[in-house]
Amino acid sequence: MADTLDLAADPVELTIALVDTPSVSGDEKHIADLVERALREQTGLEVVRTGNVVLARTNLGLPSRVVLAGHLDTVPINDNLPSRLADGILHGCGSVDMKGGDAVMLNVAATVTAPRHDLTFVFYDCEEIEASRNGLGRVERELPEWLRGDLAIVCEASQGVIEAGCQGTIRVEVRAVGERAHTARGWMGRNAIHALGDALATLGAYESRIVEIDGCTYREGLQAVKITGGVAGNVVPDEAVLTVNHRFAPDKSGADAEKYLRELFAGYEVTVTDLSPGALPGLSAPAARELVAASGAAPVAKLGWTDVARFAALGLPAVNFGPGDPSLAHTKQEHVPVEQIRHCRDVLARFLGGE
């Protein structure tokens, strides 16, 4: 476990130090202490600590501001610490989600000393657990001025490609009601599980809606993720509940998505259990165009929900940009190519400092 962080070091070495500092959600104090101490050693940064959130920013009076955000927590360790570096691949819990991105941010904070935009760095806790504990949400409620700017970059894993905006997500419970009876006289009841047949057929016939926004292609999804019902082995069930998750393109509002599902499952009782609107790409913003140019590659749509949506709701164009394959997040095999870490650092340094 690291005792200090050298923010100006190779960002790969910095990633190793962060990965080897366990920080499972709710236990981020040590890593937050390290980050805070290292940022306070830099010149020209205002640093604030609230709980296990560490905030830092420049105040150069520049006409625009870029916010960079990354969470410090990981999912529980799965026999994948300490880190291991082999053949240009760094293995370990959090290497993808998202300590590689955190290392890039910290290195930029120390090495981009003459930025073209004022910079804000947000290192927050509890992203991997219930949204009510998410440190970014706490900053939004208690220190909203720290989330103001012209572009937000969430350094979540994106394989070193700019992922613009994000999908929205909504979960609903589709409930069917029947009437109990003994299975020996099943005709005297109404089977609620059977009554979900039409809803399941609707899901089976679903065809993805594909939407292009700002050159980014979003593909919607609709999946049953859980089904419950049944009383006993000899009883016709009187209630069954199907849980459905809909991932929707950011041209839809949360209200649009809810309306769509209520119409799709007309005749059933539909209850919304979770709803997070998406984020439009926002690539027409000047700072976003500069970032795309610095990356040298075409941006793509983010097929999933990330905290960019929180920034978009505040009026900031927001993108995901960080090292690592997001499909490896939360797995025992989590690993990141070291060249992606360096690539992301170099792109941000070009964008922010004109290197």
Rank of each mutant, 00 (worst) to 15 (best):
E142I: 06
Q167I: 05
L119M: 15
D97K: 05
D79N: 14
A114P: 00
I89W: 14
W146Q: 02
D150Q: 02
C93P: 10
S95N: 08
E140N: 12
A157E: 05
Q159D: 13
A164K: 11
R133T: 02
S95I: 14
A69G: 09
A109C: 09
G100W: 04
L106C: 09
A157I: 08
P82L: 13
M98V: 04
D87V: 13
N78T: 12
G92S: 03
M98P: 05
S158M: 11
V104I: 05
F123V: 11
Q159I: 10
G165L: 12
S83E: 10
N107C: 14
T120A: 12
T74R: 11
A164D: 09
E140K: 09
G149I: 03
L119S: 02
R171H: 11
G88R: 13
E163P: 01
D87S: 15
R171I: 01
T111Y: 08
V75N: 03
G168H: 07
L106D: 07
C126P: 01
E128W: 12
C126L: 08
Y124T: 02
A86Q: 15
H117R: 00
S83T: 12
T113M: 03
N134K: 04
I153N: 04
M105S: 00
P115N: 04
V161K: 07
F121A: 11
A131Y: 08
L90C: 05
D102G: 07
V75I: 13
D125H: 11
G70K: 00
D97G: 07
V108H: 06
H91L: 11
L151K: 03
G101E: 10
R171E: 10
C155T: 15
A109Y: 11
G149P: 05
N107D: 12
V122G: 08
M105Y: 02
I77Y: 01
I89Y: 11
E127R: 06
E156I: 13
L151Q: 01
M98S: 09
K99F: 01
W146V: 08
A157S: 07
C166Y: 07
E145H: 08
G101I: 14
S132V: 06
G135S: 07
G149S: 08
L119I: 05
F121M: 11
R148V: 02
T74G: 14
V122Y: 02
L143H: 06
E128V: 04
I170C: 06
Q159M: 15
A103S: 12
C93K: 13
A131I: 13
H71G: 06
D118G: 00
L136I: 00
D118S: 01
G149E: 03
P115D: 07
G168E: 04
C166R: 05
D102V: 15
F121H: 05
E130G: 10
K99N: 09
I77F: 00
C155H: 04
D97S: 08
T120N: 02
A109E: 06
C93N: 15
T111E: 13
